[in-house]
């Protein structure tokens, strides 16, 4: 067998195993984000949103926050999936099954990222379907919508992988979501337009990468954005590249994996 087909089988094995894991514990992986987002839609979209009225571009507050909340679910679930799955493999030492195999590092990384992106996408679709019970949506730019979801999920999968590589205990994989991911998400324009902020908060918000993901997705769905769509894709691609290089370097050096 050629190296390419060998690597393809290995990649397929990791992705399949990750998807089986997601489905095996679906009450932990799929249901909680659906419940959380339903509460967001009811409280922020329906109850509070009805008092806010139209927010930007003539969209209701509910319509405005749906893309942000979908993207929020995608990135938190992609991150959570890879960090818990890879750290779990480290913790149980089952990661050694892959480390002793001929599989190159990029296949391990791509397999885990693909699994995490898959969970992000499934959760994103679930949340979007729930949103349709509360409001009507028409996707303006389907390709941009899909690419922004893909890049957003990939960025946070890679970030979750790096977190899992460095983590020494389960607490370490909870720290980043609590102290970094959640604040950045809430301050990333999910619930408001950064144009509503005065300076310097508007300038500060623009160094938050989540702002670009949320707005790229919002542009895809609603056709409005607080940031230039080109800039949003440049930022996302830069993060994908930077985090991929970092993750591959960590695997090559065997940080937290090989003695």
């Amino acid at each position: 067998m050629s190296n390419a087909s060998t690597n393809l089988v290995a990649l397929h094995t990791i992705v399949r195993r990750e998807i089986v894991r997601i489905m095996r514990i679906w009450t932990q992986t799929l249901i909680p984000p659906a419940i959380t987002m339903t509460l967001y839609f009811v409280i922020f979209g329906k109850l509070i949103g009805s008092r806010i009225g139209a927010i930007e571009g003539g969209f209701t507050y509910m319509q405005y926050i749906v893309p942000g909340l979908v993207m929020m679910s995608i990135i938190t679930n992609s991150y959570g999936n890879i960090s818990s799955s890879f750290f779990g493999a480290k913790f149980q030492r089952s990661v050694e099954e892959m480390l002793v195999s001929p599989m190159p590092n990029w296949v391990i990384l791509l397999g885990y990222v693909a699994g995490a992106v898959a969970r992000g996408l499934v959760v994103g679709v679930l949340v979007l379907l729930i949103a349709l019970f509360f409001t009507s949506l028409h996707v303006v730019h389907p390709v941009i919508t899909f690419l922004s979801v893909l890049l957003g999920a990939t960025i946070f999968s890679l970030a979750g992988f790096v977190n899992a590589v460095y983590a020494k205990k389960f607490d370490d994989i909870a720290l980043v979501p609590t102290f970094v991911l959640t604040p950045l998400t809430y301050l990333g324009g999910v619930f408001y337009s950064v144009n509503m902020l005065g300076e310097p908060w508007q300038a500060i918000s623009r160094i938050n990468p989540i702002l670009y993901m949320v707005n790229a997705f919002r542009f895809g769905v609603l056709g409005i954005s607080d940031v230039g769509i080109g800039m949003a894709f440049v930022v996302m691609l830069a993060f994908v590249t930077g985090l991929s290089v970092l993750a591959l370097q960590l695997l090559k050096r065997g940080v937290g994996l090989r003695s």
């Binding site: 067998m1 087909s5 060998t6 690597n7 393809l8 089988v9 290995a10 397929h12 094995t13 990791i14 399949r16 195993r17 089986v20 095996r24 779990g88 493999a89 149980q92 030492r93 089952s94 050694e96 099954e97 892959m98 002793v100 195999s101 001929p102 599989m103």
Partner: peptide
Amino acid sequence: LVPQEINFNQFEKPFDICVNQAGFYGIPR
């Protein structure tokens, strides 16, 4: 390699553990 410590995912089934291991070596399912 048969290591000293148990190092498979305890929540997986023996059949899947073996088939996945083969997959990591590029052996078709």
